[in-house]
C-alpha cells in the first residue's frame, strides 16, 4: 500500500446503464489496495448504486432461477468494497450527494455510505493526492 495516499473519485452514472459503473468500481477496488483513504462522491444517478432495495432476479431468456443466475447488484459489489477496505486497513468514504438522493428516493442504503454535499467533495479533493472525475453522457 502506498502509505498516506488519498484518492477521490467522482461518479455520476446510475447502475446497470453504463460501462463506467464497473470501471469505476474496479478503480476503487484497486485504489483500496494502494491508497490509505479513498473517497467516492456519488452524484446524480450514481447515488442509486448503494440502494438497499436492489434485488437480483431470474433470467427467463436463459431459463435460470434467481439462485442460478446469481445476478450481481451494485449494492453487493459496493458492500464488497467496504469489506475490502476493512481487510486492507484503508478507509472508504462513500458519499452520496444528498439532494440527488432525495429526488431519486434513494435514501435507504446499505451500511457504509453517508449522505453529503458538494462541500464534502471539495473537502476531500483538497486532501487528495489524486482525483478522478468520471463523467456521464
Amino acid at each position: 500500500m502506498t502509505i498516506g495516499k488519498n484518492l477521490t473519485v467522482a461518479i455520476m452514472d446510475p447502475p446497470y446503464e453504463s460501462a463506467t459503473t464497473a470501471t469505476a468500481l474496479r478503480i476503487i477496488d484497486a485504489a483500496l489496495r494502494q491508497a490509505q483513504v479513498v473517497t467516492v462522491f456519488a452524484y446524480e444517478g450514481a447515488v442509486s448504486m448503494t440502494m438497499k432495495a436492489q434485488q437480483p432476479h431470474a433470467n427467463p431468456v436463459k431459463g435460470t432461477t434467481v439462485e442460478q443466475e446469481e445476478h450481481p447488484t451494485t449494492k453487493d459489489w459496493i458492500a464488497g468494497l467496504f469489506a475490502l477496505a476493512r481487510q486492507t486497513g484503508a478507509k472508504l468514504d462513500w458519499i452520496n450527494c444528498g439532494l440527488c438522493v432525495d429526488e431519486r428516493g434513494a435514501g435507504e442504503t446499505i451500511d457504509g455510505p453517508r449522505r453529503g454535499s458538494p462541500k464534502d467533495f471539495f473537502e476531500a479533493v483538497k486532501l487528495s493526492d489524486g482525483v478522478i472525475v468520471i463523467p456521464t453522457h
Partner: peptide, 13 residues
C-alpha cells in the same frame, strides 16, 4: 496493463 496502473498514475504527484 491492469487498472491498478491507472490508480498509480492518478496518485503520482
Amino acid at each position: 496493463s491492469g487498472i491498478d496502473r491507472l490508480v498509480s498514475l492518478a496518485l503520482t504527484p
